[in-house]
Design a protein around this nucleic acid. Structure first.
Lengths: 108, 108
DNA sequence: TCGATCCGCAACCCTAGGGTTGCAGGAGGT
DNA sequence: ACCTCCTGCAACCCTAGGGTTGCGGATCGA
């Protein structure tokens, strides 16, 4: 019923460098070269990360002349958050129900 | 201001096998051996995954005789979701503000 | 036109970590 | 006491992927 766990997006978020990138893009849009100047990794490494983030829908690219400006998509992150919250609530609801049954029928 | 990005928890969630485990534990608590019987991986692999999940606070262990029963902690997942949602909203708010300024002062 | 950037592709290195097998220790059941 | 089942360590294999360097193509500014 619930959609398959969004592992791809979570994997994209499971990296410190990518969070550093997202932090900067969440403050203001900028290009890969800009990011490379502010972070301790090469531009190509950043390009790879941006590709992953774009694939995951967490970032959007916008070509502006020879530069490519990226911006963080907060709505995507919030959407992911909603799905996780729903799953978490689902677990607790089911487990609480089981606990209640165990209480009412105490044959351990 | 905002707490450091919860990369550890996200990394714990960035794996299909662990989601399979969480799905089962979210339906009803069970032991590592139980899980090994229902999943196509060895018990030791599952034990490693459970250690990761426990470390991330997404699962709780409860010793019952010689068995160790695990259960999913939905509240933790929901808490993580809240943090992500807040971050996402933060990005959009800041970027929207920048867009508004650019609109009011259009010297591209 | 020429130089300075900016991007994209490709090859390569190296570690993190998911998976396996094997074995030893304990707790239960009969 | 004995056998069974579950857990915990340890060593090991192997791929995914984060990082680097190097090069070639394209675009902007002077």
């Amino acid at each position: 019923m619930s959609a398959p766990a969004p592992v791809a997006q979570l994997a994209a978020l499971a990296d410190d460098t990518r969070w550093a990138i997202l932090g900067l893009l969440g403050a203001s849009p900028r290009s890969a070269s800009d990011l490379a100047r502010e972070l301790p990794v090469s531009r190509q490494a950043i390009a790879k990360h941006l590709a992953v983030l774009e694939q995951a829908g967490l970032v959007a690219a916008e070509r502006d002349g020879r530069a490519v400006r990226y911006r963080a998509l907060g709505a995507s992150l919030s959407a992911l958050a909603d799905r996780l919250d729903a799953i978490g609530r689902g677990w607790d609801a089911r487990l609480a129900r089981i606990a209640a049954i165990a209480e009412a029928d105490p044959r351990s």
